[in-house]
Simulated assay, not measured.
Amino acid sequence: MKLIITGSSGFVGQNLKAFFTEKGRETIDLSLRDPNWGSKITVDADAILHLAGKAHDVSNTSVEQEYFQINRDLTIELFDKFLVSNIRDFFFFSSVKAVADTVDNVLDEELIAKPLTAYGRSKREAEEYILNQTLPEGKRLFIIRPCMIHGPGNKGNLNLLYNVVKKNIPWPLAAFQNKRSFLSIDNLNYLIHSIINRDELCSNIYNFADDDEVSTNELVHLISETLNKKVKLWAISPSFIKIIARFGDFLPIPLNSERLKKLTESYVVSNSKIKKDLGIKNLPYSSKEGLIKTLRSFG
């Protein structure tokens, strides 16, 4: 089996490459920056894993049109070439943010998409295009909507939180009560591998998330345990914290409104659909197991 991977130099791409190489699968890197990338779509491959894209910029400095040029237009161009190729499967790595920027209860695949950010709208417009195309017989399309992905080597808000605890700085956002879904890179690898190997599966849209959600305060506890440090939580008034975050929207301080939202909002994602279709009860790693593995890699 041969797999074409776009965005193979990124965190998810590197992990998928290593995972499938261990499984004895050949992977082919496809850089969409290469003006001749279209020629690689003619190779004898079984699936395209389209990971390349412009990630959500929490610093809010990106030009909006860049999201649409990269996340939408390049996806459309790649998918059109897939349609006339001999490749069976196309995996488009979209995002839960293509559906909703905030979640009141639990996000599942039935929720009507109403993305607000340029990132979410660009992913959603790419989804809409490829879903409206007619798939030739024998081909399959899978739209994957992962939530926040983590794993050894991944830098992001988890790393920011880790460094706060490591420096013995009390966590000042303990007054915010939330629940968030995460996705271990090991669970992501497992799910992609399982879908590819299930010939009976039909085209579909799937949310990817770990089985259980975690609060930010619980994360602070996990990090403290990993570092063998005493848990330090400060329950500062949320209204005061939000004022500080607004200053961060204009000044170079660690906290801004977007980062505050990511650290404190509730965002619970259901993975029931993919588990039902694969006939599994639980994913290989629990949220706690996956997060501990990630946190230990930061040391």
Rank of each mutant, 00 (worst) to 15 (best):
N163F: 00
C147M: 03
N282F: 11
V220H: 06
W171Q: 00
F208Q: 02
F182M: 13
S184W: 07
L111H: 10
S85Y: 01
S181C: 05
Y119I: 06
D34T: 07
R25M: 11
D249N: 15
F19A: 10
S9Q: 13
E22I: 01
R121Y: 10
N204G: 14
P170G: 09
K179V: 09
K281N: 11
Q69F: 03
R246C: 09
K2G: 00
M148E: 03
N168E: 12
A209W: 04
K114Y: 10
L173H: 08
L32D: 07
H56A: 06
K155Q: 14
L107K: 08
P172Q: 15
R145P: 15
K229R: 14
Y162N: 02
A18I: 02
R72D: 00
C202E: 12
E218K: 15
V165S: 03
E128F: 11
A18M: 05
L16Y: 04
P146N: 05
E64G: 02
N178E: 06
T42K: 15
L111P: 00
I192G: 10
T294A: 12
P136F: 13
S237W: 12
E125I: 04
I292A: 10
L78M: 13
R124P: 05
F93Y: 04
S272R: 12
P252C: 14
S184R: 04
E26N: 13
E289C: 01
W234I: 07
L227A: 09
L78G: 10
R296M: 08
E66M: 04
F298W: 02
K288E: 15
K123S: 04
I28M: 07
G24I: 08
Y162A: 01
D212V: 09
I185Y: 09
S239C: 02
I196G: 00
T61W: 01
L161E: 00
L160V: 13
I185Q: 06
A52K: 03
N105P: 02
L116A: 10
D80C: 04
V220C: 02
L51D: 08
K275A: 05
L30P: 15
D44Q: 13
F247G: 10
I4L: 14
K167C: 01
E213G: 09
L16E: 01
S122V: 08
L191P: 02
N217F: 12
S203G: 13
T27G: 00
R72T: 14
V106W: 08
I87M: 03
S85N: 06
R124Q: 12
I149Q: 08
V84A: 11
R88K: 15
F298V: 06
L116V: 11
K232N: 05
S266E: 02
I144R: 02
F82P: 00
N168K: 14
P35F: 11
L263P: 01
A126M: 09
D212F: 07
F91G: 06
Q65M: 06
L49W: 11
E110Y: 07
L233W: 07
E26D: 12
K114F: 09
I149C: 05
I243W: 13
K179C: 03
D34C: 05
G13S: 08
G10M: 07
T42R: 11
Y162T: 09
